Computed example of a mutant assay.
Amino acid sequence: MAEENNAPVFQIQRMYLKDLSLEQPNSPQILLDQTQPQVDINLALAAEPIAEGLFEVSVTATVTTKLAEKTLFLIEAKQAGIFEIRNLSQDQVEGILGIVCPQMIYPYLRAVVSDVCTRAGFPPVLLTEVNFQAMFEARQQAQLAQQNGQAAATVN
């Protein structure tokens, strides 16, 4: 029975839309322009412990669409989930929080952004697939390089 209490646990507790914002600062005049807009998409990830063994992981997409220098629309959407993670090593937990959880959340975020665009009267913006493992590894390498740089600076 004691072995069962130490078994690794990974479960989704809840998925939810945490924040959503749509701005159309230059409407309705800009809607008459038929020029092809420039679309800029930025993603951000966050993971926070909220209780023993429980973590909130969120993926935020900021979509800015401009015609020349005027903003056509700006969407910021944050999709989040609460995950239970227990009895795993710190490295395993970091990998799950940085790769697995965002992969589970991202399809919901993609649907929200597309839906908001359509409801706002624009063609849907389809967020491309994201390689969260590559993002996680790049972030780890950057942190390691920064730590090595700081260590070298302290030695000199």
Rank of each mutant, 00 (worst) to 15 (best):
A145S: 11
A138S: 07
L144M: 10
C117F: 05
E4S: 10
Q29C: 01
A44T: 02
L88V: 10
A61P: 12
Q150N: 12
P107W: 10
D33G: 04
K66Y: 02
E84H: 10
Q141F: 00
Q24T: 14
T154M: 13
Q38V: 13
V59Y: 10
P8V: 02
A51S: 15
E23R: 13
V113D: 15
A142V: 02
R110Y: 11
M15S: 06
Q140K: 15
A47H: 09
G53T: 04
Q13H: 10
V100Q: 15
V116E: 14
Q150G: 04
N5K: 13
A138F: 05
T154E: 15
N87W: 07
L32G: 09
E52Q: 12
V63D: 08
P49C: 02
S114Q: 09
I50F: 10
E94P: 00
I96K: 08
L126G: 01
V130L: 11
E3M: 08
Y108D: 07
T118F: 13
L74E: 04
L97I: 00
A44W: 02
Q79W: 04
M104P: 01
P49A: 14
P28V: 09
Q13I: 05
T35A: 15
Q29Y: 05
M135F: 08
R86D: 12
P49F: 06
E56V: 03
R139H: 11
L31E: 12
L97C: 06
F122V: 04
P37G: 05
